[in-house]
Design a protein around this nucleic acid. Structure first.
Lengths: 350, 350
DNA sequence: CGTTAGCACTTGTGGTTGATGAGTGCTAAC
DNA sequence: GTTAGCACTCATCAACCACAAGTGCTAACG
């Protein structure tokens, strides 16, 4: 059945109103505030019909109507007015990223914070997979106690938490040589390609095979996703939304939120081609809490994949605001990163 | 007024019982379960007296008694039985730290997790101040785009989040030379001493003063405490305790917990000489939530300061268990770190 | 004089009841 | 197709009740 324009309009009003007030909306409220030219009885008929179509539900026969997940989906696709951000919000975004020159790890944190602050929801961020990043430089840094720190820099991040045990016979010069050799072998390759030169590498290292074995082990470990690849910001923000007055909901939400594995699972299977991605309720994601919604966007700028960012919150979410924030943050990053690469030459004159 | 032995015994029973059950304890419960040789009326008299002394309070005249903060303090100092951990718990501790060879940053996370898991409370951990750490090695690692990564290794951690902008005229060899110079200048010095060689350093760098200025800036920034120096584990654990059925308490707790600054303030002003430190309620720490308690211990092993660890939770906390866990974790770390330094020579034979 | 039994008093808890108000569905008239 | 009117359904709230738990006090006891 095709929906009439009036049905759409009414559905839009119901969703808007409910997002704003968190109170089930009644026919009377609709005619008083928005559709002043028809009576509440007419609206009631339409509401009953929308309910039959699966867009609305009511808890009790006398409790007003609430949008169903299906209604939110339709709302986001067709009904929602894509609002723009206030000047203050735009200022906040542009000032937040002004002097960030650092790596993805830092970027991700500040982006997550900005998103959480502006939307008033808990935000999640996932680093891009490291596997395809090209190694730009690497070194072994001796640091006493017979150990050396393996540091690897790729296009967008720093990997550096492996200590490598050194044989007693290895002098600092030996380490420096090994370091150069590593660089020659791996620089320019993606992490995922490391294994292709594994045999060659072991051969070249001869005497210090053991060291090389550990380095290769470390390289492999970086390709696997780690807990630190997921960042959360503003978990306490959920208290600002009335659905989380109930302790059970909070508990549920927090337990999902505090397991990085679960978050990774929810955020992880993004389709990279879609800019904005909305998951509503447990229907869209197995590990999602029943009554939660996740809106994410995958950013890239200047050829770099900058990760996936989003907010997680109640189904009754201010999608318009959230999507506007995600889009504008994306634009700001594009300007910052994309711009920086081009500005490079002029910059040194300052 | 000196407390009689019986008063002490009764107070101990009340606190024990309340810690276990979270229910105000009545005179009847005491005589039934513990003091079977006197009547409830006698206990009532004693309870009334203990209340006058400030150790107990009652919400309502017919609601049983609850220990006051003062009672908890007395309990911890004199009454509490210092229990030992179960074999399973001890196993858990020793297996958790078996193959951690990494830096303090990683150690702190796994320690915080272990403490949180074993005690069932939210745990907090603060890294030791970096200022007095001696630099073991440092390097500038060129990574394209006219930038280099500054990596510094100290006795117990890795500092590496500064990118340094390089002049276009600086070749990779120049960077390598600069790197060696940095090492010669700073290795063996504490971070706090960096400024003492500032003038000398700037002199030596001549042509590349700008780079040196940035390096010094970075060194200074490391001496300041950062958000990452505070780690939390198991925030969702509070839901396992009945005082946090109330949404208001949860909110309050979470808002303190999610501000690293506040945590730093609470945990920060530890007296290093005291092994175990207990703060009860807002009386002991300005930023502490009214009805919360913080138990911390500062660990060091093999001459290294390993940071301050603790749990934060309701006043009605299982102090005996918490303190036992903190002590045993401390012992395990001592063995692990202290032992490793000594084993060093034998180890390479394996 | 410490201990105890007995009893009146206080107060949270849980269940019932009834009034109120919001909101709907239905029907009949426009 | 729209509307007014009305009966019906429920959630909410306050009042009220009985009940159980626990205390404080008093008087008696050894």
């Amino acid at each position: 059945m095709k929906m009439s324009d009036r049905k759409k309009r009414i559905l839009q009003i119901v969703v808007d109103e409910y997002i704003n007030s968190a109170v089930p909306v009644s026919s009377k409220a609709i005619t008083e505030k928005h559709l002043t030219d028809v009576s509440s009885a007419t609206v009631r008929n339409e509401l009953a019909s929308l309910e039959e179509l699966g867009y609305l539900t009511q808890f009790h026969t006398s409790g007003g109507r609430v949008p169903s997940p299906q209604a939110y989906r339709f709302y986001i696709e067709e009904l929602m007015q894509r609002g723009n951000l206030s000047a203050a919000d735009l200022d906040y975004i542009s000032s937040a990223f002004s002097d960030k020159t650092a790596d993805v790890e830092h970027l991700i944190k500040s982006v997550a914070n900005v998103i959480s602050e502006l939307t008033d929801y808990t935000s999640v961020a996932a680093m891009p997979n490291a596997e395809e990043e090209r190694i730009r430089n690497m070194t072994l840094l001796p640091c006493g106690d017979g150990r050396a720190l393996l540091v690897i820099v790729t296009g967008s991040r720093i990997l550096r938490d492996s200590f490598i045990d050194l044989p007693d016979t290895m002098s600092d010069e030996d380490v420096a040589n090994a370091s150069h050799m590593l660089c020659r072998l791996f620089c320019g390759k993606a992490l995922s390609e490391a294994r292709t030169v594994e045999a060659e590498a072991l051969g070249e290292f001869g005497q210090y095979r053991q060291v090389m074995t550990e380095v290769i082990e470390a390289l492999k470990s970086y390709a696997r996703p780690r807990d630190e690849d997921i960042v959360l910001a503003g978990p306490e923000k959920i208290f600002n939304h009335p659905e989380y007055e109930d302790i059970g909901n909070v508990k549920n939400f927090l337990s999902v939120i505090s397991s990085k594995d679960k978050i990774a699972e929810i955020v992880g299977d993004e389709d990279d081609e879609i800019q904005i991605n909305v998951k509503i309720g447990s229907a869209d994601g197995k590990d999602m809490p029943e009554d939660c919604s996740l809106v994410t966007a995958t950013y890239s700028a200047g050829g770099k994949n900058l990760g996936t960012y989003g907010v997680i919150g109640p189904i009754r979410m201010d999608y318009s605001k959230v999507i506007a924030v995600l889009e504008n943050v994306g634009k700001a990053l594009e300007e910052l990163i994309g711009g920086k690469n081009k500005d490079k030459k002029e910059k040194d004159d300052e």
